[in-house]
Simulated assay, not measured.
Amino acid sequence: MPKKKKVAILYGGRSVEHGVSVNSARNIFEFIDKKKFEPVPIGISTTGKWYLTDGVSKNVEKGQPLALLLDPAKPGFIILSSGDRFKVDIIFPVLHGTDGEDGSIQGMIKAMDLPMVGTSVLGSSMAMNKIVAKRLLKEAGLPVTNFMTFRYDQKDKISFNAIAKELGTPFMLKSASLGSSVGVSKVKTKNDFKNAVEEAFKYDDEMIAEEYISGREIECAVLGNYPPEASYPGEVVISKNYEFYTFDAKYVDPDAVRIDVPAKLPKAIAEKIRKASVKAFEALHCEDFSRIDLFLDKKGNIYINEINSIPGFTNSSMYPVMWKERGVSFPDLITRLLNLAQERYDRSKRIERGFQSGLKF
């Protein structure tokens, strides 16, 4: 019988999405095929400390403190209390938001020379920053909403009237590099504006103002490499009690949304969304899996809103639900992701790391 691969499930993190990460990781730990894989839960506290935990727990600090063994020949971890060392075969980052989805952790894992599920450094950093992502998507010929960008040092000069003239009202204000609708506000009037600016800059040094699209919230799951494939789109139908798809609507209020999978769409529109989602995935150099969030207006126009390079795996998360509708169970989806990561890692070994030259040093 083949030896089980040890899979480090990396969760928590120094992010406003820490709790969402815990819930996602808990599902992956539960549904991973334990006949093929041995899950090793590693939690990162809100202060950035790493712990080997007993299962996936919100009480990360109750685990055993860890240090990283940064040796590409024998990458792994050290349990600080005992000095014991252990290694894993593959890492599955389930870290949403800052320091987890923006390329930071991905770069460290790459330096450890371990296989890793999900998008690497370049794609993670580009997808996480809404400003960079929109510019690249636009360059790729994909439809995005009209937008304006601002830095924190421009804060006192940002004009409601100038934005309203360019984008119309209402418009959206967002922190440039966050997810789960944290740091996001819908601005209708000048009275809303100041607080919305403060909220956006509370979490980031950059802010993006976007045209508001009155339409349907559509999501599409992308899986695989060479080439990737798209699920059938799903729809998030938001309660009229909410102005937009807020954090509470996503994760707190069980009555806030209805999930329609598959979405009720004309075939031509659904195919248009699927093709645009794959193109967006490739344009931002995503790998293994991502969820593409889109708007569909009343005229049938689609707009790419953003790309989530580590989509949620909570009980209410669309990514696994959309693949389940296509016949891919939660355990099978996790196995496919782990296999994709291993295949990509093996493929990367063809790349030379040295160069023979006449340089003397």
Rank of each mutant, 00 (worst) to 15 (best):
residue 2 P to Y: 04
residue 5 K to G: 08
residue 7 V to L: 05
residue 11 Y to K: 14
residue 13 G to C: 06
residue 18 H to D: 15
residue 23 N to C: 03
residue 32 I to R: 03
residue 47 T to A: 00
residue 50 W to K: 13
residue 52 L to Q: 13
residue 56 V to N: 09
residue 63 G to V: 11
residue 66 L to T: 14
residue 72 P to W: 07
residue 74 K to S: 06
residue 78 I to R: 15
residue 81 S to V: 00
residue 99 D to R: 11
residue 100 G to F: 04
residue 109 I to G: 05
residue 111 A to G: 05
residue 121 V to I: 15
residue 123 G to M: 00
residue 124 S to R: 11
residue 125 S to K: 03
residue 136 L to D: 05
residue 137 L to A: 12
residue 138 K to T: 07
residue 139 E to G: 05
residue 141 G to Y: 07
residue 148 M to H: 02
residue 149 T to Q: 15
residue 153 D to G: 03
residue 154 Q to A: 06
residue 155 K to R: 13
residue 159 S to L: 12
residue 160 F to Y: 14
residue 166 E to L: 15
residue 167 L to W: 07
residue 172 M to Y: 14
residue 175 S to I: 11
residue 180 S to V: 03
residue 182 V to Y: 12
residue 184 V to D: 09
residue 190 K to I: 01
residue 195 N to L: 11
residue 203 Y to C: 03
residue 207 M to A: 15
residue 222 V to G: 12
residue 223 L to S: 06
residue 229 E to T: 13
residue 237 V to K: 14
residue 241 N to A: 06
residue 245 Y to A: 08
residue 246 T to W: 11
residue 246 T to G: 13
residue 249 A to L: 12
residue 255 D to H: 13
residue 259 I to C: 10
residue 263 A to H: 04
residue 267 K to P: 04
residue 271 E to K: 15
residue 272 K to A: 07
residue 278 V to C: 04
residue 278 V to F: 08
residue 283 A to I: 04
residue 291 R to A: 02
residue 293 D to F: 01
residue 300 G to I: 06
residue 307 I to D: 11
residue 308 N to M: 10
residue 310 I to S: 11
residue 311 P to M: 09
residue 314 T to C: 02
residue 314 T to V: 02
residue 324 K to M: 03
residue 328 V to S: 07
residue 330 F to M: 12
residue 335 T to M: 01
residue 351 I to D: 06
residue 358 G to K: 05
residue 359 L to D: 00
